[in-house]
C-alpha cells in the first residue's frame, strides 16, 4: 500500500497504534454510541467525552492540531440544524424584527442546536483518530472480524489498492485539461457551464475505460498467480487478554460518562 497525500494514516509508535485494530474499532463505535446516547444539553458529559478523546490523541503521538483542523470539515453540515434555533418551542432567548415580523430564538433551540453541533464535532474527531492511527490492512482485518461479508471486504481491499493508482490517473486527466486550456486573465477558460460539464464527463468516461482495461490486466495477473475466485487471508491473530481488558475498561468509562450525562442533566 502506497503512501499518498490522501492516506490519513500517521505512522508513529504509540500505545494507541499498538492497540489491536478489532479492539480499536469496537472502542470507536462504542464511543460514537455513547456520544449519541448522551442527552442534549449535558455539557459536563460532552466535555468529558471530548477530554477522553483528546487524551487518546495525545497518547497516540498524533498532533492534536492535525485532528482539530481536520475536524472542521464536518462543521458546515451544522447549518442543517440551524433552523432549530427558531423552530423549537421554549422560553424566548432573543428576538429581532425582519420587516414587520418578529423572529424569536429560544433558549431550548440554542441548547439543541449547540448539542447537535458539538456531538457531531466530537464524533468526527473519533473517526479521524481511528483512521490516523490504524493502517488500512488492519481496518480490513477488523471488518472481517466484525463479520462483514468476505466479498465486500475483498472489493474494499482491491478498491483501496487501486484507489491511488486511479487517483493519479484522474490527476493526469485534469493536468491534461489544464494544459489544453489557454487561460487569459479576466476571461473564464473554456465554454459555457454545459460545455465544461461535458468535458468533465468525457474525462469520467475515459477514466472508466482505463479502469475496465486495468481490471482486465489485473484479473489476468491474478489468474497467472493461481486466483480461483476466493480471496484468502491469513487467519487473524488472537486478541491478547490485555487488549480485552482495555476494551472492558474503555466501555466501563464510556458507560460512566453516559450515566453522568443523564444524571447531571
Amino acid at each position: 500500500m502506497h503512501a499518498h497525500p490522501f492516506d490519513p494514516y500517521v505512522p508513529t509508535a504509540s500505545p494507541v497504534h499498538a492497540l489491536d485494530p478489532r479492539i480499536k474499532l469496537a472502542l470507536v463505535l462504542s464511543f460514537l454510541l455513547g456520544v449519541a446516547l448522551t442527552p442534549h444539553g449535558a455539557w459536563a458529559a460532552l466535555i468529558l467525552f471530548f477530554a477522553s478523546l483528546m487524551a487518546a490523541v495525545v497518547l497516540s503521538g498524533i498532533s492534536p492540531w492535525r485532528i482539530l483542523r481536520r475536524s472542521l470539515i464536518g462543521l458546515p453540515f451544522a447549518l442543517a440544524a440551524f433552523p432549530l434555533l427558531f423552530t423549537t418551542a421554549g422560553a424566548e432567548w432573543f428576538s429581532f424584527h425582519a420587516g414587520s415580523w418578529t423572529i424569536t430564538a429560544t433558549g431550548e433551540g440554542l441548547r439543541r442546536f449547540l448539542s447537535i453541533a458539538l456531538k457531531s464535532w466530537i464524533s468526527v474527531q473519533a473517526a479521524l483518530l481511528l483512521s490516523a492511527a490504524t493502517p488500512f490492512p488492519d481496518l480490513l482485518l477488523a471488518l472481517r472480524a466484525f463479520r462483514v461479508p468476505q466479498l465486500l471486504v475483498s472489493v474494499i481491499g482491491l478498491m483501496w489498492r487501486y484507489l491511488f493508482v486511479l487517483a493519479d490517473e484522474a490527476i493526469r486527466l485534469m493536468r491534461a485539461r489544464d494544459a489544453r486550456s489557454g487561460i487569459e486573465p479576466g476571461r473564464r477558460p473554456g465554454g459555457g457551464v454545459i460545455w465544461r460539464a461535458r468535458v468533465a464527463g468525457g474525462m469520467a468516461g475515459s477514466l472508466f475505460v482505463r479502469g475496465f482495461d486495468r481490471a482486465d490486466r489485473v484479473y489476468a495477473a491474478m489468474l497467472a498467480r493461481g486466483y480461483d475466485g476466493e480471496t484468502r487471508a491469513l487467519p487473524a491473530p488472537p486478541v491478547a487478554p490485555v487488549q480485552y481488558a482495555v476494551l472492558a475498561a474503555g466501555c466501563v468509562w464510556l458507560a460512566l460518562l453516559i450515566l453522568i450525562g443523564i444524571l447531571v442533566h
Binding site: 472489493v155 482491491l158 487517483a167 472508466f208 479502469g211 475496465f212
Partner: peptide, 13 residues
C-alpha cells in the same frame, strides 16, 4: 471481483 474493486476505485477517483 477485481472488476468491482477497480470500478469502485474509478468512482472514488
Amino acid at each position: 471481483v477485481p472488476m468491482m474493486g477497480i470500478l469502485a476505485a474509478v468512482i472514488f477517483a
